[in-house]
Amino acid sequence: MKKVRMSLKGIACALLAGMAFASCNKKDTPAPPQPKNAGIQLVHASPKTGELSIDVNGKKIQDKVQFLNQSKAYMAVDVQNDAALKFTLDGSKVVVDNKYKLADKGTYSLFLYDTLLNNKIRAVLLNDNLSDPGKGKTSLRFLHLSPNTPNVDIDVFKGSDSIRLVSNTPFIGEKPDVAVLSTFKPIASGDYRVKVKVKDGTVKTILDIPSVKLMEGKIVTLYLSGLAKGTGALGVGLQQWQHK
């Protein structure tokens, strides 16, 4: 019996030693790296620029993106390294080829704007804060993306109330202030009449939109599009891009 007890004791010790060894090995094995991704939306707001193909990190992800394209969901982009975004016109003319540093789990919108110059257009990457604007509120920001339209004032009307939404705001130009342009501000949700005005000797209303609906809890960019004296879709317009 003594020999049996000794054998059982030896077996127990061996099992404990094996478990300890396995535990040590498990601790020494590094966990696989977690993927790092950001979300990005792409907005074609460059007048007189045709359909674009989009490559992200060397892979084509979208084709035939039109001027004033409809909103798409945020697409996931790997951010282990800087994100390389390339936009091609007519299959060969590269109109934008930039790299952007994106934060893990960040959300962004890349607006393509201005008219073609030497086969190039401009792009601005904005940070999208998708936090809930609060009960009865919409988060709103404005971009002036009409290159030959003067500075604008925008007044919004709700019932008998009116608000000056933006004042004397210029085209964002060659070197836009990304921090300022990225900022959303809360506004009461609801239906608004919107007037866009310029000063050309006298104050002139260039757009009078009877109803713009801002829905509760939504995150929205309003942007001025098109060209002064343009016609149809190329004329000056006010677009609503909903991020959430």
Rank of each mutant, 00 (worst) to 15 (best):
V166L: 11
S139A: 15
D155V: 14
G201V: 01
S189Y: 07
L140M: 02
L140D: 08
P210H: 09
D161V: 01
K197D: 12
A179W: 05
T169I: 12
V178E: 14
D155R: 12
L165D: 05
S162I: 06
K158G: 09
S167H: 14
F157G: 07
D208H: 04
V166Y: 03
K199G: 00
G134N: 08
P150L: 10
I154G: 06
D155P: 03
V152E: 03
Y192T: 04
S211G: 01
S146C: 13
S182W: 05
A188N: 15
K175W: 04
N151C: 10
L140S: 01
I209E: 00
V124R: 08
S211V: 13
V156C: 00
S182M: 08
L181A: 13
P186Y: 08
K204I: 10
G159K: 10
H144W: 09
V180I: 13
S189W: 01
V203K: 14
P147A: 10
V124W: 06
K185P: 03
A188D: 15
K185Q: 15
R164S: 15
D208Q: 02
K197G: 03
R141W: 10
T138P: 07
R141D: 08
R193M: 07
V203Q: 14
T138F: 05
D153A: 00
D208C: 08
V156H: 03
F157I: 09
D177H: 08
V198Y: 05
S146N: 06
L126N: 04
P210L: 04
S162L: 00
A179L: 13
F171M: 02
S160M: 13
L130C: 00
L145M: 11
G134T: 09
A179R: 12
I154K: 05
K137V: 07
R193E: 13
S211R: 14
D191F: 02
I172C: 06
V178C: 06
N148E: 06
G173V: 10
K158S: 15
P133W: 05
S160E: 15
G134C: 10
Y192R: 08
D208T: 04
V124P: 04
D128F: 09
R141T: 10
Y192V: 04
G134E: 09
H144K: 01
I209L: 14
R193L: 05
L126D: 04
V198P: 00
L145I: 01
D132K: 12
D132L: 10
I187S: 05
P176M: 03
D200F: 03
D155Y: 15
N151T: 13
L207P: 02
V194G: 00
N129K: 12
S131V: 02
L143K: 02
K195D: 07
T205I: 12
A188M: 12
L207V: 06
F171W: 02
S131P: 06
I154W: 00
L143S: 02
T202H: 11
V198S: 03
S211T: 15
S182H: 08
N168M: 08
G190C: 02
F142Y: 15
T138Q: 00
K195G: 06
F157W: 11
L207E: 05
G159A: 09
F142D: 05
S211P: 05
V198N: 01
L140F: 03
G173R: 07
A179I: 13
N148M: 09
N129Q: 11
G136N: 11
A188E: 15
N168G: 07
P150T: 10
S167P: 01
